[in-house]
Amino acid sequence: MALESVVRELVLIVGTMLAVTTLVLVGPTRLAAALRGYKWRIRKVTLALGLLIAVLLVRLGGQGIIPRLQLSVVGLNITPQIDRVERAIFPENPVVFLQGFESELVTSFFVFIYIHGYAFLLLFPFIAYFSLRSMDRFSSLVVAFTANYAIGLVCYVFFIAYGPRNLLPLEVAPLLYDAYPQSRFLTNEVNQNTNVFPSLHTSLSMTVLFLAWVTRKEYPLWFPIAAVFALSVVVSTMFLGIHWFSDVVAGTILAAISVYIGLNLDLEGLQRSTVAFVRTHVDPLLART
């Protein structure tokens, strides 16, 4: 009930942002042309999308299992180490420093960025790259997102970490929930409070930013826009007390790895060689029986 109204608001605001940006950056003609050829476009990226959906399903299905895996098998609680390293490097924890700038306006801005800005930043590239002549960039985007989720998932099994608001309640205010209590419904659906290392908000936003740089020729205006949004999301995760600086660094590294995979993984080649392997090795075996 409460979740529903939060989601409705999210859809309305992000939908408007997407519509306006699409109109300006992509343009109606390019979009219409792309939509007309939707069949081949979809066919081209079926494999990549299938992979992404599979990983998302594992993540969804694993929500109950991951905490148990963490505890019983391999989970290492690295919260004290993160806090310790940051205390050694910085005179003041970066999160505490950022929260020093707190005012109603600043908090509202970062809450908006963390929820709405983030959703917009992640969704727009799908429209933009879908509308390009070739589907290569779209495919890179999907593969990079898949890599983010897959590697992130593995990290969450190995590392148990609570965010700064959970460890340092006297120094770090849970600004997101203070300013926007309803958001708890949303984040509770999506996240576990032990899954902060690395920051997926950071890694996905930085992934979009890195790809925006790659496609700066096709969408020259998108890169500066993505830069403003992505960096704001990164700062917001810390400002709102959700992530450590370390999570953000790890998230950025994860983004770089994921983009590398996204740009270099030849999914079709992989598919072709798999098919070839099956044809030459498995089929004859089957035929014999």
Partner: peptide, 28 residues
């Protein structure tokens, strides 16, 4: 964590700060 028991987490935070001020290398 503070999500589970805010008071316990606050106590830990304050106690760790005080120990550090007194020169003890305290982690939370």
């Amino acid at each position: 964590p503070a999500d589970d028991d805010l008071v316990a987490a606050q106590l830990s935070n304050r106690f760790a700060d005080n120990l550090r001020t007194a020169g003890v290398d305290a982690d939370q």
